[in-house]
Design a protein around this nucleic acid. Sequence first.
DNA 1: GCCGCGCAGATTGTCAACAATTTGGATAAC
DNA 2: GTTATCCAAATTGTTGACAATCTGCGCGGC
Lengths: 223, 223
Amino acid sequence: MPRSARPTPARSDVTTRLREAITRGQLMPNERLVEADLAATYGVNRAHIRTALAMLDQEGLVVRERNRGARVRAITDAEALEIAETRLALETMVARQAAAKITDTDRKALRAIEADMRRAVKDADDMAFSRCNGALHREIQRIASNATATRILSTLRSHLVRLQYRVILLPGRPQSSLAEHQAIVAALCANDANAAEKAMRRHLTSFTTLLKQAIDAARHGGF
Amino acid sequence: MPRSARPTPARSDVTTRLREAITRGQLMPNERLVEADLAATYGVNRAHIRTALAMLDQEGLVVRERNRGARVRAITDAEALEIAETRLALETMVARQAAAKITDTDRKALRAIEADMRRAVKDADDMAFSRCNGALHREIQRIASNATATRILSTLRSHLVRLQYRVILLPGRPQSSLAEHQAIVAALCANDANAAEKAMRRHLTSFTTLLKQAIDAARHGGF
DNA sequence: GCCGCGCAGATTGTCAACAATTTGGATAAC
DNA sequence: GTTATCCAAATTGTTGACAATCTGCGCGGC
């Protein structure tokens, strides 16, 4: 039987679609998530929305109060830093593990992404740079093949994506970030776990510091 | 109105009860979780069970296959090590943060738990020791007040509890574990972030190593 | 004996209706 | 003008029924 007119048009993962809507900022923090509305929007039953909200609650992207419904969880500045630091701790571990497991194929993949990233910096293409950034980190996680850490990092990232742009758009950030990434790639390709961990720590420390500055600037300046 | 005959007898968190049933081993790995049965067991509606299963799925404690229901997720040996290593990375960070924030009240609490632990070792009371162990780690997390890391660690722990006993019951383990914990407490009380991180790393590295040995022994020996 | 076929039971997926609760505003009292 | 009270609309919580799907078993053909 051809599935031309499929009965469930990708309705299986409303959770994914809702998650993306939140991380992309289409649903603003503290915005109420009315089950009936969401059901209508995504063309599914209220039960689907209900379980999706339960999962996103567990994931920390929404909060639910009994009889009061769900809202997009607004993360505080302090929490953003917590997340950035937790990410740092995990990604340094992942970098170390990746250095121990890397193969020639992996090296090629890393260098390809690095080349893309260099190009993006030269062209001053922030969007492309951001994509390469994500791709590189994900590739390192794939090499480390630590499913547990990868899963946790992906949920942490979903909380950070919105803030990330503030940092990337800082003047001179792409250049220094590129250098940091190159150091990471070099260490990984050399099988040097210590150097890889150190390079990743330096990279993410710098990210965290800049994030902190961006947050402070937002608080005092134009909020 | 008095709530003598309360309408919802703690039915609100079937999720918690299910989670505990799994972590305590009352529900075995790969055991099928039939919604109707669970609903009857816990005296709630199938919808409750359904959302509980969705959350525990997100948490990684159960797996669900479409139209085939949910089962308790069986974690592999490799995964157990992944989890232990991830835990190590997070708890070393937490130890560092706790050292930076510790107050006199916190110091007292830590020393009290340490005393309990010493007593448990002297009495060779493994259960009490295990409780103190958990209490100490939780207290350190509370001091660090990194909600993000604490949340992640609590789910990681839920995966490790069953394996934990294998390690604790090894001969001589309580004694060496006690010494490791004392080093951690001392470093924390001295506000020494570097020493605290180092002590925690040593402690959890030793735990991870023993866990690895226990796994290998189980594989080759009597499993 | 072995393999495919199909049926019945068990189980999950979907849905709509109803009950319970909250929320905002209108109304009345002061 | 302010506050308290109550009602109606909106929203979530709960339940049961039905449809879709899977699973195991018996039956028949070879």
